[in-house]
Nucleic acid binder design. Structure first.
Lengths: 338, 338
DNA sequence: AATCAGATTGGCAGCGCTGCCAAACCCTGT
DNA sequence: ACAGGGTTTGGCAGCGCTGCCAATCTGATT
């Protein structure tokens, strides 16, 4: 814009060194509080930093520091979506642990698209992170290859039903489905339906459904009917889908939802249509959203350790233990709807 | 771990150059698809990249590229929270635009703490981003100084009620409060209360309340009573707070909530206690969450252009227009609760 | 065959910081 | 006054990549 602008170069570490009358490495040591230096030097450096408004350049720092022990204090995180509150929760858990350990994070959102995930993996690896946290166990062959070739720590979170590349932190989605089914059976429900969202997008939901279905079948009361809403989960989708399901099968006495969003929508349908819950129809969700607990009748659902998963994922990345699967479990919340 | 491990150095650009039998700068040009090179060279480079599994080092790239025109394709984003779906939505909008323009983002979460925001600004600036997107207009003096000194583009999003540092993208929260009040007045409600969450944390909510309160006062029907739930907004907090409010003032005929989460909780309270909505009590929210539209009676609320705000924020960062305020407006959704 | 503009290409100096190592100091004890 | 062991310090070579510029090559033109 202004041709005469003196092309203000940003303040660099060597500017600080000059201003403080010390060497560059001394400034570097003081700023990282590493190695030894006198109090006097420290004060002079601090003064110069403040006076010049110096902001360290992490890019340069990480570049220079790489290759050696110190390494990058950076982790990449890939989640499939920001819309479902579950994933921001994972980030929240991870963030807390990240801050504690002085790490930074770079985040990628795959929109449930495996190809996009693969691309994101490449993008994040190019930051040379100390580790990568991805969601789920299913990845394209290319993604798997890249992760393996990267040579860094990998954490796959949320799902423990399958083989992981390195560290896996989560719980058994299959188990969730089984336990959900057992609960409904134990309460005496027999004509049970399922309302889900597009399962191609959400492999974990598919695993829950598989466990649920199998448990019902083994008990001799096979899943009576399913209704899949197109697109991602939402209360609106759940409400509409339950409507369609009941239109086809008015005899159902319980419905299992792919998650609480859908279940909440189902509950709204029941309220709107005067379907007594759980007398006439029982509802069962998944995730234990805060909002589900505030309903007039608290939703019966499964609490998943979302924050813990994020936190443990980061911990394991930082530590350098062996490859392993950490099952954080889940908890059935017996609400008033089933 | 393994002492004998050949200290596998990662593949670098010069390895690729050697493998492809071309110069480093040629590889660089091909990879960035910039400058000119022959088809044959391109193929050879592509082959070498694939064979060696080369992953470019962005750190080095950005370091080298800085100082010149090209500059960093990186923006920093600071939001106060991940819990409230509003902020992930902003990220979502920003992400879409970011991808389109080939930018990467680094995200910071301030937990509504101004001091933490200031620290995050420092942390993000050290990535030498092309621009920074922050939330709201209120920052500590130190934060403001750092932003100004950074010399990069700054976007403050969501709130247009005040002076911005550079670019401001959002809507008038004060206006939202005013229009909400006018709507309730127009519908004939006179004994109006307010249910909010900790306002020290959420300056935007405070501005809405101020506009709401003033409009009511001017109309001669001042706000009858307020109830502030401690902590962040949630359905549970809204439900409990409405309970307390009505216990004190059973005569209220309408309640304005700090947002839809709180309003949803309020609605649940009404359902649970048999308070007729809107006959006995009208409810008015803010944000137009998807879930609010799926309620048996759609919530009357205000739709905010969250995705657009994120997208426009990024666009303005990338373009280099003048400092200005972009008001994206909002829309009153007349539901069935008020 | 010589000439010339334009297309391709390679070499190399940094970008700002950290790691390594030698140099300079600072105290003791003798 | 001098050696010996720790504490501070500064110099400088990279980290891997891009920008700049000169060198080389290409094909068409004269």
């Amino acid at each position: 814009m202004n041709v005469h602008e003196p092309e203000r170069r940003l303040v660099t570490l060597s500017d600080v060194a000059r201003a403080a009358g010390v060497g560059e490495s001394t400034v570097s040591r003081v700023l990282r509080n590493q190695g030894s230096f006198s109090k006097r030097t420290q004060d002079r450096v601090a003064e110069a930093v403040a006076r010049l408004g110096y902001v360290p350049n992490r890019l340069a720092g990480m570049l220079a520091g790489s290759g050696s022990t110190a390494g990058a204090k950076l982790v990449g995180i890939i989640i499939p979506s920001l819309t479902n509150i579950v994933f921001p929760d994972l980030l929240r858990g991870a963030n807390a642990a990240l801050d504690r350990d002085g790490f930074q994070s770079v985040i990628g959102v795959s929109d449930y698209d495996p190809a996009r995930e693969e691309a994101l993996i490449g993008a994040l690896l190019s930051w040379r992170p100390a580790g990568l946290i991805v969601t789920g166990l299913e990845h394209t062959a290319g993604a798997r290859a890249r992760l393996r070739a990267s040579g860094i720590r990998i954490v796959e979170m949320i799902d423990t039903d399958g083989d992981g590349l390195d560290i896996v932190v989560g719980f058994s989605n299959r188990g969730v489905g089984c336990d959900s089914a057992r609960h409904l059976l134990a309460r005496g429900y027999r004509r049970i339906g399922y309302v889900g969202h597009d399962i191609a997008l959400d492999l974990r939901a598919a695993k829950r459904l598989a466990g649920f279905r199998e448990t019902l079948r083994e008990a001799g009361h096979p899943l009576a009917e399913t209704e899949i809403a197109p697109g991602p989960s939402s209360a609106a989708a759940g409400r509409a889908a339950l409507g369609r399901l009941l239109a086809r099968r008015p005899d159902l006495d319980a419905v299992y939802f792919s998650n609480d969003d859908m279940a909440l929508g189902g509950y709204f349908h029941c309220l709107a249509e005067g379907v007594a819950v759980p007398g006439r129809l029982a509802l069962f969700g998944f995730n234990a959203l805060d909002i589900a607990a505030a309903m007039p009748q608290p939703l019966t659902t499964i609490r998943t350790p979302r924050l813990e998963i994020g936190a443990v994922a980061v911990e394991r990345l930082a530590a350098d233990g062996p490859a392993e699967t950490v099952d954080l479990g889940y908890e059935l919340i017996a609400g008033a709807t089933a």
